[in-house]
């Protein structure tokens, strides 16, 4: 399995407050990797650094064998897309317009049409609401839209920040199943979650974060079978 993302020894800070220290991780092509941790562990900060929304003070990030692009739009261009915490859909644009923003860099009309179809197959609800404003969707639908919008960029790696936030368990299971489908379609997935058990159920490997550092890593089975670990750091 070839390596897709390689993060080595990165640190980041908000003003003077360090939020990440010496974080390293790798993701192989085709994997589903989860980063777990309690509130304030630095999971969102890590993703902000990977999407270049936030500057890293130390360390290096490589993607697909090259240093990661420096600007957010260029990161998307290189094939890495983030589905941010709290969905961040465009409430005053329609569902379809939201999707079109997702593929704003692509010029291949046919490919875009095909991907739009695929997205509607994955999320039939979005097809029903295609011309409705994003702001009128339910929380679960908004999450689906955020994922669908990310898919429209046809990414090699999709990073999701707490897609389960505020959703009913049944919707969470649905969304995770769909992530599994997306993954079998060839998209590598980096999932950030507090909802440990659900995330573990679909992951290949796991990193555990606590106050800005990675404290454990390993295959998902090891975590699944180790209740004490889950209880100590995550709960739920």
């Amino acid at each position: 399995m070839s390596e897709l993302l390689n993060v080595s020894h990165i640190s980041a800070a908000y003003g003077g407050i360090r939020a990440l220290r010496d974080v390293s991780l790798t993701i192989g092509e085709g994997e589903i990797v989860s980063v777990l941790g309690a509130n304030g562990a630095g999971k969102s900060t890590l993703l902000k650094c990977l999407s270049r929304e936030m500057r890293i003070t130390e360390g290096e990030i490589r993607f697909a064998g090259r240093p990661l692009a420096a600007k957010p739009y260029a990161v998307v261009e290189s094939g890495m897309v983030i589905v941010p915490e709290g969905r961040q859909i465009f409430t005053k644009l329609t569902v379809r317009e939201n999707l079109m923003i997702g593929c704003c860099q692509r010029r291949d009309k046919e490919g875009i049409a095909k991907d739009e179809e695929r997205v509607y197959t994955l999320f039939p609800r979005l097809l029903e609401r295609r011309d409705q404003y994003g702001g009128l969707l339910s929380g679960g639908e908004q999450q689906m839209l955020a994922i669908a919008r990310g898919l429209m960029a046809r990414p090699k790696l999709m990073m999701l920040d707490e897609p389960s936030l505020g959703l009913a368990p049944i919707i969470v299971s649905q969304i995770l199943d769909i992530l599994k489908d997306i993954n079998s379609g060839g998209t590598t997935i980096l999932l950030v979650e507090q909802n440990a058990r659900k995330a573990l159920s679909i992951s290949d490997r796991v990193y555990l974060m606590n106050v800005g550092s990675i404290i454990r890593e390993g295959p998902a089975e090891a975590f699944r079978n180790d209740d004490s670990l889950v209880n100590a750091y995550l709960g739920g």
Partner: peptide
Amino acid sequence: VAAAANGI
């Protein structure tokens, strides 16, 4: 921020 994250 979301616009930038989506490649704009």
